[in-house]
Amino acid sequence: MECCRVTHSGAGAGEPVIVVRGVSVSFGSKAVLNTINLDVCRGEILVLLGGSGSGKTTLLKQILGLMKPDRGSIYINGVDITCCTSAELIAVRRRLGVAFQSAALFNSLSVEENVAMPLHELTELADSTISLMVWIKLKAVGLTDAARLYPRELSGGMRKRAAIARAIAMDPEILVFDEPSAGLDPIVAAGLDDLIVFLKRTLGMTILVVTHALESAFRIADRIAMLDHGHLIAVGTKDEFQASTLPHIRQFLERKSDFRAAEGNFASAYLQEFMHEH
């Protein structure tokens, strides 16, 4: 594999921050990602949309450097994380904040300790400075009242907010969200969507959101990329997406199932007929 460094010197809106080039991954003989090419530009919210099993979580793990692709390269701020040294990878990760699907808060620590943890571990700041920074981050996500609670005492939405506060604790340039609205009721999910847009507007972060939730994708995205069975089938703005005639995108937008009943099975044939009639 060729190893090279692409350098993007200087900051400027629109320049790509995450560059995925020709990434392929397979588990055994099953191809999960096929030659994915994707750019995430500075200051935008890119939503990676895809159904279950489309390979979106695998792509996310590649971008975070938790798994290595079989082929291809991923550049974050110009550093190829598929073949850099571990010191370089750590440097890249310090400018990256992640909120995982399950929130992944440390259960033995309270909310404020969870948010303070990266600051305590990775910086030499004084405790008083850290507690001020923690308060600011908790204020940003609206969780100052719950600072002393433990993760098990929080609701699903509060947990996600706490995870976001921890993700922004180090003031990262790039924020990554894995399924932010999974398992939440529509009101709480909409609240999280607004929070994501708020973070982009106020802190100017580049945000990558991986989700299957259509409503939230349209609510927050500057651009949408769609994965289907390991292929990146479309990248474009919201309007381009809504106007698209690609069959899979139409199917996704119109929530049509691809359930096909087995032939020769009376019950499922009956079911199919029933569904056809109604």
Partner: peptide
């Protein structure tokens, strides 16, 4: 591992 706390540690660079 199941709740992705290990991944969180690694992503934080810890």
């Amino acid at each position: 591992l199941v709740t992705e706390e290990m991944d969180t540690l690694r992503v934080m660079g810890l």
